[in-house]
Design a protein around this nucleic acid. Structure first.
Lengths: 336, 336
DNA sequence: TTGTACGCGTTATCAC
DNA sequence: GTGATAACGCGTACAA
């Protein structure tokens, strides 16, 4: 079944059928009705490839997760929430989503090549791209609009992105600990290659500075967002006797809690803890976790909307969006 | 840049370039080299739409999650793990993934129509399709191969699927409780519309029967896989004084634990609990959760492999795969 | 081993 | 309002 077949059955020309399908004017109501009826009868759907060939538009955006396993394992709810947001917008705007999952280990040139040269998508959402990933170098090769979710560590002035205000969030977290009377506040930080980690560290320092508490490098442990790093980081920090921890993410926070418990100390009495993200488990753990909530689903929805507007020419140039975070007080900070 | 341009630069005809790109024989080594060089230089990538138009193959499979929100919210790790498996195979076999996310509420005819008529994928993976979803009725309209993840409640003899042996898993769970000396074993069951729930219930009954324990309908609470249903289900079951619970999923199990604690009872001393899935939180909760582990990532990998083999004609007819489950003993069953 | 010519199903342009 | 017809970029018999 193609346009020609429909045209024959409706006793019109192919062009008219095309006009009807694309809701173009200059078709008489009677003709339009007749054609529509045949289309319905035959459950006709135009050939996507043929259409793309001439219009050069796929009505499809690509979602790139360069280090998929990392994202999946460090925080289970992050990716589904992000996708829920992306899906919401693409559904509303009648786009499809193509998913590109990269391996966290073995940065793969083939993957990069596939993503950069694929002609199947009109634009790209790139989530959490580490600064040392090879895709970074090939960004200029990409001929379609790009929106990053999370601020890229480089080129952030020329690339569009949507993220949360990690600096303000970090500052809010540490402020809360300070207000609760804590003074030796340590920080389990994320990777240097990811701006989320860098920015939260900046927020940490800023809060200390504003409160007049001197910055002590011993109290900052550079690691990653994983539970394992939270655990080892905390083990290391214990010798410096902190009375509070700001962890770069909730998952790392839980690793830290475990290390504290194993040391025979209590949360929050001996050491208060605050995380970042507000993942699901934060409400179920013991103690429940005080944290900075970030609107992940909204990040996805906004990113997709901006990308599609960029594709369709309703928007131009690099777009930068910072979404707000929110302090969620539970038991682990001792202030509940 | 198209085949013609490359041909001109390489001083050959368009057909020869096409042959080189598709790795066809009957091209002299010298010519092949020359063409390859130009292709590399120009970073040429053939136009996907044009190619699809003539070959009628997209090299793309669609992943359909009809009730995305449900999947995302009831068990955060399920979907990423499934996707990791699907991604693994599609990457290895050089396919792309198109993602169709449906809304759990408001079963949407437009969504169904889009999925069934899209010509963008050569085959479909459908995950967790409830028996009352409208997509079920339109399954026959789909002209491409389909592989379901989780056994469909109807047509399971004519549709290919990959799932775990839920009956055996349920039986294993209840057996474990019986071996631990429990006798009044209740079951918080999943939806009737999803075969996972139905089959686990069958496994529950089978284990009781084999142990000579009479089946008591009061001890089965039909609900859903959510935490909320675990909680309300448990509240309801408490009046019948069970000494053990087999919950349809870990998330529901945690809801049950909460209800038990609120009733001033202890897990596992007063009531033992065993879940299903082995989600991440099961290792972090208090008490840690005994459960039946299912290999979700493998489910995805196998499903994609079967689908692609179906598409490429290496496999025929409905394919049915049952993956094994595994008992993971932790604290909540009292047998650790 | 290489080249020619046709067709895939659409949209876009132009004539009527 | 409507209908021919020329692209779009590729694969593929068939001819050379």
């Amino acid at each position: 079944m193609n346009l020609e077949d429909i045209a024959r059955k409706a006793q019109v020309s192919r062009s008219t059928v095309s006009r009807v399908i694309n809701n173009e004017p200059y078709v008489s109501d009677r003709t339009r009705q007749r054609v529509m009826k045949v289309i319905e009868q035959e459950r006709f759907q135009p050939n996507h490839a043929a259409r793309t060939l001439v219009t050069r538009r796929n009505e499809t955006i690509g979602i790139v997760i360069p280090t998929a396993e990392n994202i999946f394992f460090t925080d289970n709810s992050y990716f589904p929430m992000l996708l829920a947001g992306l899906g919401e917008t693409t559904r509303d705007m009648d786009y499809a989503m193509l998913l590109w999952l990269g391996q966290a280990t073995d940065y793969d040139e083939r993957f990069v090549r596939k993503v950069t040269t694929s002609r199947q998508n009109d634009g790209l959402i790139i989530a959490s791209l580490p600064g040392d990933h090879p895709l970074f170098a090939h960004l200029p090769d990409i001929r379609v609009p790009i929106v990053m979710v999370d601020r890229p560590v480089r080129f952030d002035d020329i690339i569009s992105y949507v993220t949360v205000d990690n600096i303000a969030g970090g500052e809010m977290a540490v402020n809360h600990l300070i207000r609760s009377g804590r003074r030796r506040i340590a920080h389990i930080a994320g990777q240097e290659t990811i701006s989320d980690g860098r920015d939260r560290l900046i927020g940490y320092r800023r809060a200390l500075e504003k409160a007049g508490i001197p910055y002590d490098p011993d109290l900052v442990h550079q690691g990653a967002f994983t539970r394992r790093h939270g655990y080892t980081g905390m083990k290391h920090l214990l010798q410096f006797k902190p009375d509070a921890i700001f962890a770069c993410g909730d998952t790392a926070a839980f690793g830290a809690v475990q290390a504290i418990h194993e040391a025979g100390l209590s949360v929050p009495d001996d050491i208060a803890i605050i995380g970042f993200d507000d993942i699901d488990v934060a409400t179920q753990s013991n103690p429940t976790l005080t944290t900075i909530r970030q609107p992940v689903q909204q990040k996805g929805a906004v990113a997709a909307r901006i990308l599609i507007n960029l594709i369709e020419g309703h928007l131009e140039g690099p777009q930068h969006v910072l979404l707000p975070t929110e302090l969620i007080v539970r038991q682990s900070c001792g202030a509940a």
